[in-house]
Structures are given as structure tokens and as C-alpha cells.
Amino acid sequence: MRLTYRAIIFVIIVLCVAGCASTQSKAPVQPHKRDLTKGSYYVVKKGDTLYAIGFRSGHGYKRLAAWNKIRPPYKVYQGQKLKLFRGTKPRKTQKKKKSNKKRSSISINNKKVLRLYWQWPVRGKLLRSFYQTGNKGIDISGRVGRKVRAAATGIVVYSGSGLVGYGKLLIIKHNYLYLSAYAHNRRLLVKEGQKVKKGQVVAEVGIGVNAKPALHFEIRKNGKSVNPINYLPK
């Protein structure tokens, strides 16, 4: 069958259009969401393209290619880990851990305790030293009725005369570490559970073990009697 001149021209045009359409590269489909703007890394999934990841992260495919050293034609593979930032890995801000250690309101250092927290409970001469009492506190002289003051701030945990050999006794708890005791008083002026301040009058001097007016004073650390002279000001 013979084709006319016009028919031949039509066939040539159709073939050219079809050939151009088959060789033209398809434009990538732009994703709809920017859902990777907050992440630092992204693992490539099946069907992902660098163009799509660049759009979703807001950085664009050229930046991602440069940051991840990907060369044209910018192919990525499934499972590939891409960083979504420039340079090295961002540093994580480390939160300071809270210390679980309890802090004493009284320093364990004797010098600091001496200067900041303790005072003599009564004015008087030292009648018996720590070693003369058998490592159980000291005896301080004083006239009967003289004011006895709290050596440091704390809470009264005992006020009574139930312990043999101590007469009317007062015990003050200063913190989880230290206690102070005031024995052989004529009168007790505070009650159990009462908070007292350093220097507050808590009792009155009575008669000591040698039938002389005196206050027996102890400082106990973790329940063990320590030499008060190492804590009291000179």
C-alpha cells in the first residue's frame, strides 16, 4: 500500500514525539511533608531518594550529598545511615547528676565545727578533763542555778532523770551525726521535741559527782563520746 506525502510526514512526526518522550527523564515526585526537620540521622528506607530526604529534612539533596559525601547521580541504598547536619556529631548536653550524699549542717572538720557551730554551755573552770572522766565528757565548774546554754542549734531528744548517774539530764540532737548532753542540772527548762537555738538557756547548773556545783557536758559523734575540748572554742 502506498502512503501519500502527507501520511509519511505524519508518521515521521509521531515517531519523533514518541522517541523524545521515551528518552526524557522523569521529574522526581516531591513529597508532601517535612517530617525529618528535628532528627540528626535518618536510615534510608526502600523507595527513598536523596531528593525526597532532602525535602523532608528541609536541607535539600545537595547539602545532604555534601555532608554525607555522596556523588552524582546521588544514589542511596536501603539501610544507609545519613546525617542531617553539617560537621561532626552534635554534642549531647550532659545533665549534672544530683548527689545522693547527705550533707551535715555541721562540718566534720574540727576546726570548722569549732568556729561556726559550738559554744561553751556554761562559763567556768574545767574540773575534770575528758580522760579523767573515762572518756565520757568533761565537768565544768559553776555556781548552782547558773544558766546552761545549748552548745549548738538542735532538737531536744531527752529531758528527764531516768538515767542513773546523770541526775537531771538533757540531750540535744544537732544533726544526724552529733548529739550533746548536759547532766547534773538543778532544773530543766526545755521539753522533748522542742527546737532550741545555739546559746538558748536550756537548764540550770546543779550539784556534780564530787558534791560541787558543776555541769557534766558531753559531745557524741555517731553515738560515741568525743573530747568536747576539740570542738569548743578556746
Rank of each mutant, 00 (worst) to 15 (best):
G142C: 06
K125P: 00
S105I: 15
A181Y: 02
A214R: 02
A152L: 02
K136R: 13
S107F: 02
T88D: 13
L50H: 02
F130D: 03
N175M: 08
K62G: 00
V201Q: 09
L84I: 10
K38L: 13
I207M: 12
G206Q: 05
P213Q: 04
N109K: 14
A183S: 10
N185D: 01
I53Q: 03
W120I: 07
G19W: 13
K224V: 14
V156L: 07
K101G: 02
L215R: 07
E204K: 15
G193F: 05
R56A: 05
R187Y: 01
T88M: 07
K46G: 11
K46Y: 06
Y51L: 03
K46P: 05
G162F: 02
T49D: 01
L84Q: 06
K173H: 07
I140H: 04
G47N: 08
K195N: 12
R220G: 07
G223H: 11
A214F: 00
H216W: 05
L116E: 15
V226R: 11
P90M: 00
S40K: 12
R34P: 02
I106Y: 09
G193D: 07
S161T: 08
Y42V: 01
C16F: 15
S141K: 04
K75S: 06
A7K: 14
L188E: 03
P213S: 03
S40Y: 12
G134R: 06
P73I: 00
G199D: 04
F130V: 02
Q200T: 05
L84G: 08
G142W: 03
L50A: 05
K234E: 11
K136A: 08
L15Y: 06
H216V: 02
S225V: 15
D35Y: 06
Y41D: 00
A183Y: 04
K46N: 14
D35W: 06
E204G: 00
V14C: 14
Y231N: 10
Y42K: 04
S25Q: 14
A152Y: 09
S141Y: 03
